[in-house]
Structures are given as structure tokens and as C-alpha cells.
């Protein structure tokens, strides 16, 4: 079973190595805190930070859910908006010149400065956080989609034209799949920043309970272990979301890793006709 062994090796490399590096970070953290006799109110040992999370999980969990909700909503809104904007700008060159400077401008605004007017407009609900996340996520998606669409092989588009394909078919059958690599690059960049956006939103536009305010509260109580623990939780949300996007990419673009197409059980009938 050569393939099984190879697959096992791949899993070991793709899962084992990142876990190893994570463990390495914790070990170095431990060594620094112990070796330099760092006071526990400056930096806790990893174990204390982890304990502060597990012991307060019932309080943390709803807050975590809130952050996840903001992240996911914001990401979906931002990615959709970014994709549509990228397509429109690629297709209407007049709009590209007009809109591009505004997009760059939007990213030059410090996010913190954006929060105050957003709270005035939308209140202390989930909405301002979603807007902030979307605001951060849409930009890399737009830029990458625009770039991808303007670099689709002209000969391929011409071939579709010669065959008599409509612009709509050419767009969905040729241009969009050809843009998948830059599209997912944009989505992955967006995914890494999405949680940061959600936390900034919680800091600047929360009236009560949120992960960011929980951390602030721990900080003012000199509960350093909880401060570090919350950071770890936030990071875990960010990494999970990024990995999910990577997973979707792997699933959606099988031709980049495989030489033979997957066999879907529900398409078997189709595959077997005329054998």
C-alpha cells in the first residue's frame, strides 16, 4: 500500500510539523519566563494562560461565539463585495480608473478612526464590527480578482469567442476558473486579517460583553494569565478561519494537487455509460 503510506507521510508533514512548531513556541515561552525569572504579572507561564482559558470557558465561550460571528459575517460580506468590485472594475475600465483611488483611500483610513462614526451610525450592535471586518477583507480580494481577471490568457478568451461562446459563458467557464489562484490568495490574506478587524471593532464599538473587553477587564485587574489566555483564544479563532479558507481552496481546486480527477459517487452512473 504505497499510496496509503505516502498519504500518511503527507498528513504527518502537513499536520505534524505545524503542531511541532506550536509546541516549540510554548517551550521557548516557558524557557524565557522561567530562565529570566519573569514576574507572573508581566508574563505568565504557558500553563497558567491555558488554565485561565479552560477554567473560565463557560464565560469565554459566548464571547468567542460573538467574535466568530463578527468574523464570519464580515468576511462573507467583505469577500462578496470584494469579488463583485473586482469583476466590475476589470470589466468596465472607465470605472477602474474612477474607483481604484477611492479603494486605496479607504485602506489608508486608520480603522480605529473609522469606529467612532460607525458606532454613531450603527450603534453598539454586531453591525459596526461586521462593517470593520468587511472593510479590511474586501481590499485584498478586489485587488487580486482585478489582477487575475486582467491576466487571463487572451488566446483562451479568443478561442472561446471563435467557438461562438457568449461573454457570460466565457466569463463563468474561462475567466473565473482562471482567476481562482489570485482569488484564493486574496481570500487567505483577508482571512488572516478578519479576526484582527473583529477585535478592533469590539474594542472600539462595544458597550458590554465581548472578547476584547474581557481581555481589557483582565488587564485592569492585573490578571495577566487571562490576558495571555484571551490572546491565545483570539489567535486560535484567526488560525481556524484561515485553515478553513485553505481547506475550501484545496477542495475547490483539485487540479493543482491531483493528476486524476476525484470520483464522486453520485456521478458514477455518468462515468460508466458507454463502457
Amino acid at each position: 500500500m504505497k499510496t496509503a503510506r505516502r498519504r500518511l507521510g503527507l498528513v504527518a508533514r502537513n499536520v505534524g510539523v505545524p503542531i511541532l512548531s506550536l509546541v516549540l513556541v510554548l517551550v521557548i515561552w516557558q524557557l524565557i519566563v522561567v530562565g529570566f525569572h519573569v514576574a507572573s504579572y508581566v508574563a505568565p507561564r504557558p500553563r497558567a494562560a491555558i488554565d485561565s482559558v479552560t477554567q473560565n470557558w463557560s464565560v469565554l465561550w459566548p464571547l468567542v461565539l460573538g467574535t466568530i460571528r463578527e468574523t464570519v459575517y464580515g468576511f462573507v460580506v467583505g469577500a462578496t463585495l470584494g469579488f463583485v468590485l473586482g469583476v466590475i472594475m476589470a470589466k468596465v475600465s472607465f470605472l477602474q480608473g474612477l474607483v481604484y483611488p477611492v479603494l486605496v483611500l479607504s485602506q489608508a483610513i486608520p480603522i480605529i478612526a473609522l469606529a467612532a462614526p460607525l458606532v454613531l451610525i450603527l450603534g453598539f450592535s454586531t453591525a459596526p464590527k461586521v462593517v470593520i471586518v468587511a472593510w479590511i477583507v474586501f481590499f485584498p480580494v478586489t485587488v487580486n480578482v482585478l489582477d487575475g481577471l486582467s491576466h487571463v490568457d487572451r488566446d483562451l478568451v479568443n478561442l472561446a469567442k471563435v467557438y461562438g461562446a457568449s461573454r457570460w459563458r466565457t466569463f463563468w467557464q474561462i475567466e473565473i476558473p482562471a482567476t481562482s489562484t489570485p482569488l484564493f490568495s486574496g481570500l487567505k490574506i483577508g482571512a488572516t486579517y478578519a479576526v484582527t478587524g473583529a477585535i478592533i471593532g469590539e474594542l472600539a464599538a462595544s458597550d458590554g460583553s465581548s472578547l476584547a473587553l474581557y481581555q481589557e477587564h483582565a488587564n485592569s485587574n492585573l490578571n495577566t494569565a487571562a490576558v495571555y489566555g484571551t490572546t491565545m483564544v483570539m489567535t486560535a479563532i484567526g488560525i481556524s478561519w484561515f485553515l478553513l479558507v485553505v481547506g475550501v481552496e484545496v477542495f475547490a481546486t483539485p487540479w493543482r494537487r491531483r493528476t486524476v480527477a476525484r470520483r464522486w459517487p453520485w456521478r458514477r452512473g455518468r462515468d460508466l455509460t458507454d463502457h
Binding site: 488566446d155 483562451l156 478561442l159 482562471a178 487540479w255
Partner: peptide
């Protein structure tokens, strides 16, 4: 054409 223009995703 000289370029085969096969689409890699199919």
C-alpha cells in the same frame, strides 16, 4: 493554436 490552450481545471 500552437499553444494547446487546455484549461488546467478540467
Amino acid at each position: 493554436l500552437q499553444k494547446d490552450l487546455l484549461v488546467p481545471w478540467r
